[in-house]
Design a protein around this nucleic acid. Structure first.
Length: 572
RNA sequence: GGGCCUGUAGCUCAAUGGUUAGAGCAGAGCGCUCAUAACGCUUUGGUUGCGGGUUCGAGUCCUGCCGGGCCUACCA
């Protein structure tokens, strides 16, 4: 049995994610996980919350809660929303887990053993009032270049000049506004990525058919200027993985934690460890997914992420894994996404602009969002969400093409034959032709799903739905019934089987609706249609079904206008 | 500033250098009456951002310009 390991970039703990975040990693990862399972793979699908770093500490402080408590609460919120969108993680972990502490410290220890860690002193801005070192962008002041008075320490947003925090005129803390800042010396561990450059370069070159978006970003970092630079992997924070050398203390690093970008990707591995622990399994159960010497040789590992995450997944994390000198699994295929824009601008967490995951589920079922977002996934360039398009596409694709098909077939059957699959008649040329057309479409669908070409796959799926409506129009069982009820019975028997077929192949996109369709057909058989003609005869004459409720209510103009107003500005 | 991506029908997107640049939606016409006024068929719509160049042949390759986006290493 083929084995597929799938990870989605782990969402930051700080607040509820918007639809742009969702389509950037978790949703396509779920689509692929569901598809691979449907095709019979053994799948391990891991996601988690990314809980460390300055923003988490500040968000907790703002909420007036201890950071551990804040993160635990936000993890629950994000977990519930993931469930609401039917994200089928095998485990949704936390980067703050004991398993991740252990593994992060383990990797650091191994990297040190291999001479890839170096202690360096650096000078950083310390805020006395806040009692903490400030990351560059948390220092604000007047830009020496253009005079903008709210320039950040890393870059001036007004004139785009790159800055050093010490360049700022009248610098202040972005957290408290305090001007009581001083430059202090602090020691940090650096991962000597420069020593791994050639190995990483060769590793990237060895990858087959990765998206341009992915390799171009990696190559840029490898070869730009002085080449891949070493990276600080520790921070002066309280909340995080304490710096240790494996299970031993790290002299001189007391009170420091690993940088969030060092421990976050390791959580992919640790999350699998968490999964094993949560299910009462031993270490071998998770290590067979990750250790080439313990059973992961035949695993195909696919990662999903937004384009902003690519450098960390093509360089930093592989540097950690390869540098350990241990036979850990590295990614085989990396799928990255552009951004989803909202009605002429960007989704903005800080401005509350756009639709957030909790709000989306309040106004419509998950499948509406899943279908639209996936069928418009920003694969080749940024994509635009507008309420007009959303309404038009969802009403047409889901309500008219698919939902109405189910409705017309089941209701016609009920009125003429009752709520069971009618007997009599047999396939003719038209039915065989339909079966062949469907088989062709299915092959194309599978090809696109295998290649993770999501929009193309969605288009093929929709085309399969359309074939059902075309068939009904040509066969016209409502006319045939008047002169040849047996023939009409054969036609509608095929159409009822189409509903089951559609449920099975559509499930990765719209799992709830697929389940409702199978329930209406009163079957639990969701086996993949490897033999399409046979799949269209699965429900035998006499098989009882029931007419389902309307699968997709249409979005009205009034609703659309209401939502467009409600989500235009600041989040309530 | 530098690097990369991108610009195709009103909208969202396709098109290994190779017939007449295609789909879906929207628009127009016709048909059907089983169905959520749904479905089907036909059809309008293009100087492929602009200017040069390479080639037997360019949406595709090269070059310049114009527009949009991302990254630029301490936000994550």
């Amino acid at each position: 049995m083929a084995r597929t390991l799938i990870t989605s970039a782990i969402p930051y703990i700080n607040g509820i994610k918007h639809l742009g975040n969702l389509i950037g990693s978790q949703l396509p990862a779920d689509l692929y996980a569901r598809y691979r399972r449907a095709r019979g793979d053994e799948v391990m699908f891991i996601c988690a919350t990314d809980e460390h770093g300055t923003p988490a500490e500040l968000a907790a402080a703002k909420a007036g809660k201890p950071v551990a408590e804040y993160c635990a609460e936000m993890w629950r919120v994000q977990k519930d929303l993931a469930d609401g969108f039917r994200l089928s993680f095998d485990h949704f972990g936390r980067s703050s887990s004991p398993q991740n502490h252990r593994l992060t410290q383990h990797f650091a220890g191994k990297l040190d053993e291999n001479g890839l860690i170096e202690e360096r002193a650096s000078r950083q801005v310390y805020s006395v009032a806040d009692g903490r070192f400030l990351p560059d962008r948390y220092v604000e002041g007047t830009c020496p270049n253009c005079g903008y008075d709210r320039a950040r320490g890393d870059q001036c947003e007004n004139c785009t000049k790159q800055l050093d925090p010490t360049d700022l005129i009248e610098p202040r803390s972005a957290i408290s506004g305090s001007t009581e800042l001083e430059v202090r010396e602090t020691k940090h561990l650096f991962l000597l990525q420069s020593k791994l450059r050639d190995r990483l370069d060769a590793w990237i070159d060895g990858q087959d058919s990765w998206p341009v978006l992915t390799t171009s970003i990696a190559k840029k970092w490898l070869h730009d200027g002085d080449g891949l630079q070493d990276r600080g992997i520790t921070r002066d924070l309280h909340w995080g993985v304490p710096v240790r050398k494996g299970d031993q203390p790290w002299p001189g690093m007391e009170g420091k934690v690993f940088y969030v970008w060092f421990d976050a990707p390791i959580e992919y591995i640790a999350g699998t460890n968490e999964w094993a622990d949560a299910n009462g399994l031993d270490d071998a159960a998770w290590r067979r997914w990750w250790r080439l010497d313990e059973g992961a040789e035949d695993v195909r590992y696919v990662q999903f992420m937004g384009k902003d995450n690519v450098p960390f997944h093509t360089l930093s994390f592989p540097a950690t894994v390869l540098g350990s000198g241990e036979p850990w699994k590295t990614v085989d295929y990396l799928k990255s996404f552009n951004y989803l824009n909202y009605d002429g601008g960007q989704f903005s967490t800080s401005q509350g602009r756009g639709v957030f995951m909790d709000q989306a589920l309040e106004i419509l079922p998950a499948d509406y969002w899943r279908w639209w977002l996936l069928s418009h996934a920003p694969e080749t360039s940024d994509t635009e969400f507008t309420w007009e398009r959303f309404q038009a596409d969802v009403n047409k694709d889901l309500a008219d093409v698919l939902g109405n098909f189910v409705s017309r077939v089941t209701k016609f059957c009920r009125s003429k034959f009752g709520e069971e699959v009618p007997a009599g008649g047999e396939w003719g040329d038209r039915e065989r032709h339909l079966s062949e057309q469907l088989a062709g479409r299915l092959t194309a669908y599978q090809t696109h799903m295998d290649a993770i070409e999501i929009r193309k796959a969605a288009a093929e799926l929709r085309a399969m739905w359309v074939l059902g409506n075309e068939y009904l129009q040509e066969a016209a069982p409502w006319s045939v019934f008047k002169t040849d009820p047996e023939q009409a019975a054969a036609q509608i028997r095929l159409a009822l089987n189409l509903i089951r077929l559609y449920a099975v192949v559509s499930a990765p996109f719209i799992p709830d609706t697929a389940a409702a369709m199978l329930a209406a057909m009163k079957t639990g058989d969701d086996s993949w249609p490897d033999d399409l003609a046979a799949a269209l005869k699965m429900l035998p004459p006499g098989h009882v079904f029931e007419v389902p409720d309307v699968l997709f209510a249409k979005i009205t103009d009034a609703q659309r206008e209401d939502w467009a107003t409600r989500f235009s500005g600041t989040r309530a």
